[in-house]
Amino acid sequence: MENNNKTLYTITVFSENRVGLLNQITIILNRRQLNIETLSVSPSALKGIHKFTITTYSDHETIEKVVKQIDKRIDILKAYYNTDDELVYQEIALYKIATKHILEKGSIESLIRDHDITVLEITDNAVVFQKTGLYDETQKLFEDLSKTVGVLQFIRSGRVAITRSKVERLSDMLAEREKSIARRKNNQTVKDTTLTD
């Protein structure tokens, strides 16, 4: 996606589960005037490690520097960025519609089929649809519904994304880091012994 010659980047951050991490990340984005488009945070596959997925419009030079600054924070394990073509990604959206408007419209079968909608709840007052998809898809449904039956409430999640190229090898990265730390400590011991000799 392009916006004023800027590209939509997805920043992925793995961090220790500490208070205030999001603040540390947003401070860095603020300094470079990057606006968060979407944000999602959740525990990762590894216990005790949280994953942030942030999308923002930026130029390449800025995003590269910003991600390095994020990666530099002590409690952050790894930060990287990707463009859309490197990712498989999805968003989820919920739509609340007045039941009587749907009944007035008659059949909604084609709507459900065309947009691949899941119905989460039906009451006398309202129906809640769920749609997963790309931003444009969930947006299209919102616009279609708004025009035909009206939308009482609408909410869209932040993006969740998985890289196309590699398996998420955070555990490998951590193991490599542990090894590197051990290697460095050994070197240090050798150096120290040389000094005392």
Partner: peptide, 12 residues
């Protein structure tokens, strides 16, 4: 403290 897994002070 002699290491923190999320921090590499001296990159190799």
């Amino acid at each position: 403290c002699d290491s923190i897994r999320s921090y590499i002070p001296d990159p190799e």
